[in-house]
Design a protein around this nucleic acid. Structure first.
Lengths: 181, 181
DNA sequence: TCCTAACATGTAATTAATTACATGTTTAAG
DNA sequence: CTTAAACATGTAATTAATTACATGTTAGGA
């Protein structure tokens, strides 16, 4: 059999991305370096084999094209069955609260007293990191969604970018609360 | 060889938990159902083999004990080498921003317009979920840290619980912002 | 024209993580 | 006294994910 498990979220991300427009595996891999990368990560070595399995399962198809002289590309598109699967997934409830797997938080947990001299440098390091990320995300919001009209064309994308920004803002605020600068 | 990769965070959690007090594999597995479960998850089937490998690596040792008539237990403790490894890990910088892997957010991303009728029910479902989680965490804070004295004895634990509460509070606030009730 | 970065696609090997299988003990409630 | 839940430890099978290996093309700048 070797079918794809229902808990494999990457397949749904691929379906969703292909629903936006036909794309190559390379294009999909690049999407994880951009906006979707805030919420999921995947390398091309995971994407190419999965594309094949999804095609075998009849959810996507590809068309071979050639760029320039002989650079082979596979342009993937959703089949009706793949589109149905995407719609079903989005419509399902999402009752799971996934733990955040934040290594810094994990380290904090093992610090015993508020006198530990490592706490302040750790907080400062994280503040710098999350402040940088916040700046980056705010920049993206301005460039990707300059007008309300653009927001409405990719409303979900706008929502999750707004969510990511709030998350970073709150993280920064929380860190600041415990910084004794 | 078959040594344990530096990116395997579970090993550090185990070191950290054993540093608090000697424990069995069963105790460690239970810790992931409680406070640490907010930030990491692991099943006993992952823990037992890792304990063995960590013992082989000289980071922990165990003492066989018997509870009651004949129930065998393995009480694990840190070796000096394991303690050093824990201290090193906590002291290292944590420069990685791990993506949150939130399935609801992922689904939102693929919704095109603010007119989509699925948005409001999805927001309501998530609000209920995160509100429940928030209530749960606030309850835990009151029972686990009733006084300031207790806070100081497990300050890191207090910090991450406070962080988790803020995170849920902010998530709830964000969801409410887009709910048109 | 040379070289480098980006484009493009794949496989192999390894590790991490989950789910299922498997067994036995102890405690406390009914 | 029976039984169910919690205690306790492991392995097997599978899937997910990362890192490394492997190859070749195209566009653009120096």
């Amino acid at each position: 059999m070797a079918s794809i498990g229902q808990r494999n979220r990457l397949q749904y991300i691929i379906l969703g991305l292909l629903n936006q427009r036909p794309q190559t595996g390379y294009d999909l891999a690049k999407a994880f370096e951009n906006e979707i990368g805030e919420f999921w990560q995947a390398q091309h070595s995971q994407i190419y084999p999965l594309l094949r399995r999804m095609e075998d399962a009849g959810e996507i198809t590809h068309e071979d094209t050639v760029a320039g002289e002989k650079l082979a590309k596979k342009q993937y598109t959703l089949t009706p069955s793949g589109h149905d699967k995407l719609v079903d997934w989005v419509s399902e409830p999402s009752p799971e609260l996934t733990p955040s797997k934040d290594e810094f938080i994990l380290k904090l947990y093992f610090i015993k007293t508020d006198k530990d001299p490592r706490i302040q440098p750790m907080l400062r390091e994280q503040l710098r990191l999350h402040q940088t990320q916040l700046d980056h995300l705010e920049g993206r919001l301005k460039t990707v969604f300059p007008t309300d009209a653009v927001k409405q064309q990719a409303y979900g994308h706008y929502l999750i970018l707004d969510h990511a920004i709030e998350r970073e803002r709150d993280y920064v605020a929380w860190l600041s609360k415990y910084l004794t600068d």
